[in-house]
Design a protein around this nucleic acid. Sequence first.
DNA 1: TACGTGACAAGAG
DNA 2: TCTCTTGCCACGT
Length: 113
Amino acid sequence: MSESDSFFEKVYVVARKIPYGRITSYGAIAEYLGAKKSARMVGWAMNASHRKEDIPAHRVVNRKGLLTGKHHFEGTNLMQQLLENEGVQIKENQIINFEELFWNPNLELKPLY
DNA sequence: TACGTGACAAGAG
DNA sequence: TCTCTTGCCACGT
């Protein structure tokens, strides 16, 4: 299968595998893809992917658990509401139990190669 | 064709 | 402990 030819596509694949009620970080995805230093690209990928309905971009936050990408969603609290709807507690744009809900693709997913 | 931008992360000072 | 700088790479203008 060649669903993940480009770095972008790989980001999409990983993002789609984020379990319900769980969250991960840009860096974690980047690291899983073997490009830990390219976390910015993950954010850029999200920017392009959030247009796709099958990409749960709201489950991806920065390493501090901050909803830095909320402004890219419609309205001001759509991203927060989506997460709260999944049982994620948020306060001031930050996920409270971030460490508990953190989903690490490096551990949960099998190696890409 | 070339340069600037971007939802980040980590190291160094 | 906090702030600044650098690295990375694809897309848009």
